[in-house]
Amino acid sequence: MSLTKADMAEMLFDELGLNKREAKEIVEHFFEEVKVALETGHQVKLSGFGNFLTRSKAERPGRNPKTGEEIPISARKVVTFRPGQKLKIRVEAYAGSEQ
């Protein structure tokens, strides 16, 4: 089971009383804003959750795993997520309850 945009919109509808269209739009816009920020070189800081940032990776040698042929992996920008302290602590507490 996993949390999806549809689940999130449904919860906004149930708990906040937004209508279904508003709830769906807010969820869409929320993730779209984060994408726009990241593609325009911003980092995104959601306190209590974590930060998203882009990092530049240099070109590095790679291999086609099937043929073994060497192909360079081009330089690129990648998105990374650094969970905040609050989220890390909550997630660790889940691990504790499993043991």
Binding site: H42, V44, S47
Partner: peptide
Amino acid sequence: TPSLTKSDL
């Protein structure tokens, strides 16, 4: 590095 915060969002 410019950033987008929760309140900007």
